[in-house]
Amino acid sequence: MKIINYILTLVIVLLVVTCTKPYTIKFDDIEKRIVVSSFFNSDSLMMIKVVEEASLSDNIKSDFKTIDSALAIIYANNTIIDTAKYTNNGIYYSNFIPNENIIYKINIKKRGFSDATAEDKIPELIKIDTLIRLNNNDEYYNYRIKISFHDPASINNYYLFSVFWLAHYEDMTWWSEANYRTNDPSIGDWLDNSFQVPIFNDELFNGMKYELAFDLHVEDRESSFERGYCYVNLYSISKNMYLYLRSYNQQTPRFGDHLLEDFQQGLMNPIPIYTNVEGGLGIFAGCAVSQDSVLFE
């Protein structure tokens, strides 16, 4: 029995010793690509942020390494119409405001990188028809807002909505995100979360009038920022934008600094981030916005 005890002790010691990490997988050995970020619409200049893809070993503390002074050529229906102007911090602006139903293509050239090309268009604007304010039997989410719109038939439509307060303080005004929640069947249970975006498609109401309801928190204090005009935006977004934001939503709430740990523990199946950029990564997509507001005095 003594022999068995000795052997068992040896086995346990070996098992403890074995928790070593003999192999390293190198992260920095990648050919970096251009990452494009642009959601363009018909009420402002096209803004495009261009950065470098980072390796997993790059420590992203402040910002991704921007790509400055690249050549960003913009096409409309395959004809060159503009070269975006570089400002700073990797941000480029077009010299025109995009229109609906034109296919815009961007081609970004920068020495040391493969060309990045992407195209998309602004989808047809779907307008908010009505906005109704109701009282709600909830201590915190004390109002219910209902908006209605008519979804066009025969095409697949994709949406996003957002709710903001226009805040004022002395001479300054700014947008402040509202606190709201919804359990709309198209969106599912959704609680306001600044890192997620409530997107939905017309699978359940294609070609029909649709009413979307959400519960809103409105501060009691009259001086609060969360009073006054509340703006509700309904965005018609392109399929590319929908797919990108869907993957963004899936990865964002769960993953953070612990992504790799969670993943290696088998807790999560991987979520790839959608891209429509050929030769690079990121998103270049169009949207159109319909806005309505309600006053809480």
């Binding site: 997988i25 990648i30 970096k32 990452v35 970020s37 642009s38 959601f39 803004m47 942020k49 950065v51 893809e53 980072a54 390796s55 997993l56 790059d58 992203i60 910002d63 991704f64 996003l160 957002s162 947008w175 995100e177 600044s194 890192f195 975006v197 990108y244 934001l245 963004y248 964002t252 992504l259 790799l260 993943f263 290696q264 991987p270 981030i273 990564l281 990121g282 998103i283």
Partner: peptide, 17 residues
């Protein structure tokens, strides 16, 4: 499967702001 690289996120709200 493991991540190949890191890319910047394009948060829609912030972007619009």
């Amino acid at each position: 499967t493991m991540p190949h690289s890191q890319i910047n996120s394009t948060n829609f709200y912030s972007y619009r702001l």
